[in-house]
């Protein structure tokens, strides 16, 4: 049984859309980070699928660049989150809303 490449592309498009919508809808910063990851990995899946369809190794190599960039982004993003929420000593509604989920 072979799964057609377009299925992977559709899956990637769906994942990307879920990520984008999640980023716009969710108010929790950490969940928003996850949504960004989802979007980047949807792009990665698209790259790998196209690389297979085109018989070109370039698209697969790109994935490593994107992975590294995503890791760097999350490091910086979590650093900013820690820097902000360390300032807030009191358990205000803002803090609760951040940790809510």
């Amino acid at each position: 049984m072979s799964i057609p490449g377009s299925w992977y592309l559709i899956l990637a498009a769906v994942l990307f859309t879920i990520g984008a919508l999640g980023l716009l809808v969710r108010r929790n910063v950490l969940v928003m980070f996850m949504c960004i990851e989802l979007m980047l990995n949807a792009a990665n899946l698209t790259f790998v699928t196209f690389a297979r369809m085109l018989h070109d190794i370039g698209g697969q190599a790109v994935v490593f660049f994107v992975l590294v960039v995503a890791a760097a982004e999350v490091v910086v993003g979590l650093g900013i989150v820690v820097a902000i929420f360390r300032r807030r000593t009191s358990a205000t509604a803002d803090d609760l809303h951040i940790l809510k989920g």
Partner: peptide, 12 residues
């Protein structure tokens, strides 16, 4: 992320 997806589609 949008930009990367754009690159992926252009690549395809």
């Amino acid at each position: 992320a949008i930009f990367v997806y754009g690159i992926a589609l252009t690549y395809g």
